[in-house]
Design a protein around this nucleic acid. Structure first.
Length: 386
DNA sequence: TCTGGGGTCCTAGGACCC
DNA sequence: TCTGGGGTCCTAGGACCC
């Protein structure tokens, strides 16, 4: 979806269309007198941009950027508070619209999906890549009909290439790429465009003199393995050659559920003990609610703590039996807390529950576990008296 | 006045078992 | 006085994505 959160907001406030606006911030800001919305310059405190309109992006304001920093670049941009219920609603609508046409859909978060169009394209009669464009147009029309929103689509032989392609002509683009187009269309792009190459990997590649996908494709396999390890090295080369065998997964079980919060002001473990304790308990309660809502329980309880210097530590504690109970989670997370240094001020606290299962379900692991006590021998043993 | 929140996956070492 | 090979689980950290 194109600038998803911001675009949903523009449905509500069409008068902001064509203007720089961002969604973000941790709390609602009252607009100054005589103004319908606050501007970026009116915001103080912690918080980042979640989405910006294309007009705001043109000013250098991008998602993930701190609001205070963004305010220096675009002080007059409108600031809209995030309304996740609304975004989830529109997310359901657009996914439903797509599934009605092509049922093989993989969820990639609130505003993104992979669709397996093989069947639809091959059964269409027309020349496949012309048919691909037809199907994409049909999908865009259905999404717009259901939501009033625009999306960009990449149609290619696999997920890796489709992800890159979908980004090439935003907003509202349809980009069809075959293996024959690879060198022409993909190789000139920065290696960073490959999903999975982030800031760290990109910097390492740059240090090796590798900037584009093409340069990566033509680099020495041994060199990549030497700097990135066997698996990642091989993957980098495959990716640069557009090779990707991953299937579109229409369903997956959740692996962990977590809640975390960054404080408006850093807290001190001793001085702000009561406040921290209340927040801590609250996180556990919310995680327990989430577990219940999803109908799962978990046995690995995790604690996450970020200090004022942004250094982050985590601790895990695995309990005997999976739980969904807030008090049990709180106790286990408390065990974790004992193993963490508390000599600095804290800016973030988080609680996570992993190794999830359905309540009552016997996990493979539990079934394989040894019984607690040795079974009673059938014959009296010589050692019984001991 | 730097740097959100919810996730997944990978690596690597140590414990423990067969 | 030397010391295997696999496997699983647990833990901690980090990269990356939306």
């Amino acid at each position: 979806m194109d600038a998803f959160y911001a675009s949903v907001e523009l449905l509500r406030y069409p008068q902001l269309r064509g203007q720089p606006a961002v969604v973000g911030g941790r709390r609602r800001v009252e607009p100054p007198p005589g103004q319908a919305f606050p501007r970026l310059r009116d915001y103080t405190g912690r918080g980042v941009i979640t989405t910006s309109t294309y007009e705001a992006r043109a000013l250098g304001v991008h998602s993930g950027m701190g609001l205070m920093k963004a305010a220096k670049l675009a002080p007059d941009a409108w600031l809209l508070p995030a309304d996740f219920d609304q975004y989830r609603h529109f997310s359901r609508l657009f996914k439903q619209a797509v599934r009605a046409i092509a049922p093989l859909v993989e969820d990639r978060g609130i505003d993104e999906i992979y669709i397996d169009l093989t069947e639809l394209i091959e059964s269409g009669g027309a020349e496949p890549w012309a048919r691909a464009r037809e199907v994409a147009l049909q999908l865009q029309a259905a999404v717009r009909e259901a939501t009033g929103l625009s999306c960009s689509i990449g149609v290619t032989p696999n997920k890796l290439l489709s992800k890159i392609a979908s980004d090439l002509q935003k907003p509202g683009g349809i980009t069809v790429i075959t293996h024959d187009d690879l060198q022409q269309r993909i190789w000139p792009l920065p290696a960073r465009k490959i999903n999975g190459i982030g800031p760290k990997a990109a910097a390492k590649l740059t240090a090796l003199g590798i900037h584009t996908v093409g340069e990566l494709a033509n680099s020495d396999a041994a060199l990549l393995v030497q700097h990135f390890g066997k698996n990642t090295g091989a993957w980098l080369l495959d990716a640069a050659h557009g090779r990707d065998e991953r299937v579109v997964k229409t369903y997956s079980e959740p692996k962990s559920i977590s809640r975390e919060t960054t404080f408006e002001d850093d807290l001190h473990a001793v001085r702000d003990r009561d406040k921290l304790s209340e927040i801590f308990t609250n996180l556990c309660v919310r995680v327990a609610e989430d577990l219940k809502r999803k109908g799962v329980v978990g046995k690995t309880i995790g604690l996450k703590l970020r200090y004022d210097n942004f250094k982050t530590v985590t601790r895990d504690h695995t309990i005997e039996a999976p739980t969904g109970d807030a008090v049990t989670i709180r106790r286990a997370a408390g065990e974790c807390l004992k193993r963490v240094p508390l000599d600095r001020r804290i800016r973030l606290l988080g609680v996570r529950v992993g190794t999830l299962s359905k309540p009552g379900e016997v996990t493979a692991q539990a079934a394989a576990a040894k019984p607690q006590r040795a079974p009673r021998p059938l014959e009296p043993s010589l050692f019984d008296d001991l």
